[in-house]
Design a protein around this nucleic acid. Structure first.
Lengths: 104, 104
DNA sequence: AAGTTATACCTAGCATCACTAGGCTTAAAC
DNA sequence: GTTTAAGCCTAGTGATGCTAGGTATAACTT
């Protein structure tokens, strides 16, 4: 469970690449050091939601081998949103750190 | 919104004191440096839930001035849970940090 | 004395979020 | 040729915390 930070994680994972859903799941697992292993039922609806919100754009790609994939890239709005969400996360995390006295 | 970490925040805020609901709200606001200003509709049901779960115990207290208060303290189980939740938060936060590349 | 503000507790209902549990298709591996 | 991996999708559900309301008492103002 990403507890409200799923969108930030998705935007940050896609970053400047063009990734498809399945690859995004693997990238999150890899980059989080195994902390997060998200099910498809979490990822696909979230990608659709972010595209509808104008933060992501998608196109279908037919690779040489393998089946068609829908690849996602950030829009300008998505890039701006990522900056905001990163700041939002840092603010949130420092607030929790203060209260928990963990990293203070 | 505390995004799934409300219980940890409550347990940590109460800590070794005996606090009542209203004071808990003020303590969270103060200790978080103003980050979190939680409404009563969040706090009271959560306290009841934690008491039902055996992590908190409550008793009514009549102070010299002012009206009756229900004060909460941690149970042994609550103290153990706090330790776990602190560790859980650190693990979660480091995972998000890795993915967002914010504090990495 | 009356009204307002601060203290203090509570609940029903609602929106969001992400997960479970399924289904579908195509390519690779055995 | 059949199983496994890659790849996409949705309906329904449970948990979570907020909104918006209600109640009561004490302190402060006018």
């Amino acid at each position: 469970m990403l507890k409200g930070h799923l969108d930030a994680v998705l935007l940050a994972t896609i970053g400047d690449e063009a990734l498809h859903g399945y690859a995004i799941i693997e990238a999150i697992r890899a980059r989080s050091g195994g902390h997060f292993d998200l099910p498809e039922g979490t990822i696909y609806p979230a990608l659709h939601r972010l595209e509808l919100a104008g933060l992501l754009a998608s196109r279908w790609v037919q690779p040489d081998g393998g089946r068609k994939r829908r690849v996602y890239t950030l829009t300008d709005s998505g890039r701006r949103s990522l900056v905001e969400r990163r700041a939002g996360w840092q603010s949130f995390a420092s607030g929790i750190d203060l209260v928990l006295g963990s990293r203070a």
